[in-house]
Design a protein around this nucleic acid. Sequence first.
DNA 1: GACCAGGCACATC
DNA 2: GATGTGCATGGT
Length: 224
Amino acid sequence: MDVMTRTAKVTLKKIYQKLYAHFGPQHWWPGDTPFEVIVGAILTQNTNWANVEKAIANLKRARALTPQGLKKISTQKLATLIKPSGYYNIKAKRLKNFIAFLFEEYDGSLKKMKKEPVAVLRRKVLSVNGVGPETADSILLYAFGKPAFVVDAYTKRLLCRHEVIDEDLDYHAIQDLFHRYLEADEQFFNEYHALIVRVGKEFCKPDPKCFACPLSKKGIRLFC
DNA sequence: GACCAGGCACATC
DNA sequence: GATGTGCATGGT
């Protein structure tokens, strides 16, 4: 194993250990059912989770938080229910696109969907308009328990700030780091991503000067 | 009032 | 292929 590879591997493991030691297990994803996780994954696109929760509550109250429920209601009605999550018109269409896909390919059954090999599943989910790489991997990992690492804005920011990666690395290049250097374990990927979001929300703000982090006594970085 | 939040598709060059 | 833009609410 070459030096760079070894460094990246050690660094990724070290970050995880520091985060886990500080925050403990996160018990993700916040969703009662796999279907709720999928809906949440679409609604949370570029959106604060607190707003997504309001939209989810509206869907539950309207008894629409099932494949059949979302299939039945109109796109317009759906948009009204999910309004608090923002981008409600486009997200209503995206949810409808996913539902159409679910019924066309799997008769509306998540159980059937889960049986698909992971590589095939990812490719097919990505073909749904409105489902990009992060949403697809969130679905694979948190709804279906497949070992797909979820790369989000926090992941990229954290790794950039700690000079593990360059700013210009794209989604799949970043994901590849986790897939190549760490064991592909679903629970581990689940916990790792959840911890990144936790530290990101609290301490890793967009302001590039913001390094305040409880994991370093001097408050600057995870490790220096 | 400005800035931010667990993206994505599409237009344009 | 790179870069820019629209989509929108609610909390700080």
